[in-house]
């Protein structure tokens, strides 16, 4: 009987997502909870950035993980829980905002800043309350999809391939969207960043 009990290995910080996904798919709720605890902070921040409302983000985070649990059997690429759950979060956010996903590529200002923008000194970048306000405002000027793509890359460290898979876009489209998002963000942040270098 003890041998039966010992079949479930302990969950540690080193247990890879892929192993947790497989165990959760077999009904081990502790494994799913471990996935939740590992990713909830990022998913919640992602949703707050998309929805721009903290209370909506809390509910959307719970809905995202509830859907992830319900659909977990569909995740066959076990190691890709993070891009997969962020993809679900994006759908939840867009449903919440009633944004149709296919029309968002057009709702951005696609004029690319052409002037050379001076660059800030990265060692002097300090996100104080004032800068965070401008940062949030600048993020808010991006369309939902463009913002989601930028966040997945810069904030959540997803590869371009993973973002492309989550969005159903080509990799060049993802790169283009993120590039345009970056340029717009930079143009808006520059007046508020110190230590400019030319």
């Amino acid at each position: 009987m003890l041998r039966l009990l010992q079949r479930t290995p302990a969950i540690t910080p080193e247990t890879p997502d892929g192993a947790l996904v497989q165990r959760a798919q077999k009904g081990e709720s502790a494994a799913f909870k471990a996935l939740f605890e590992r990713h909830v902070v990022g998913v919640r921040r992602f949703l707050r950035d998309l929805l721009r409302q903290g209370d909506l983000a809390d509910d959307a985070t719970q809905e995202t993980f509830a859907r992830a649990h319900a659909q977990l059997a569909k995740l066959t690429d076990y190691d890709r829980f993070k891009p997969w759950v962020l993809g679900i979060a994006r759908n939840v956010a867009f449903e919440a905002r009633r944004v149709r996903q296919h029309d968002v590529l057009e709702d951005d200002d696609d004029s690319t800043p052409t002037a050379v923008i001076p660059s800030p000194d990265p060692e002097r970048v300090l996100l104080d309350a004032e800068l965070e306000k401008h940062f949030t405002e600048a993020m808010g000027t991006l369309s939902g999809n463009r913002r989601a793509a930028l966040l997945m890359r810069l904030d959540h460290g997803l590869a371009y391939e993973e973002i492309a898979a989550a969005f159903g876009w080509s990799i060049p489209t993802v790169k283009n969207e993120i590039h345009r998002a970056r340029l717009k963000l930079r143009a808006q942040l520059l007046p508020h960043l110190t230590g400019e270098r030319t």
């Binding site: 909870k33 939740f36 605890e37 909830v40 902070v41 990022g42 919640r44 921040r45 809390d58 509910d59 985070t61 719970q62 993980f65 509830a66 649990h69 050379v116 923008i117 001076p118 660059s119 800030p120 000194d121 990265p122 970048v125 300090l126 996100l127 800068l131 965070e132 940062f135 810069l154 904030d155 970056r182 963000l185 930079r186 942040l189 960043l193 270098r197």
Partner: peptide
């Protein structure tokens, strides 16, 4: 110039992530 920007962006996102807080959400899930 490009690397300055890329590292500045990374610094902004990293500092923002560092102060994140999450409410008790597991019960809802």
């Amino acid at each position: 110039h490009e690397l300055n920007w890329l590292e500045s962006e990374s610094a902004l996102f990293r500092q923002r992530a560092g102060r994140d807080e999450v409410a008790q959400l597991w019960k809802g899930v």
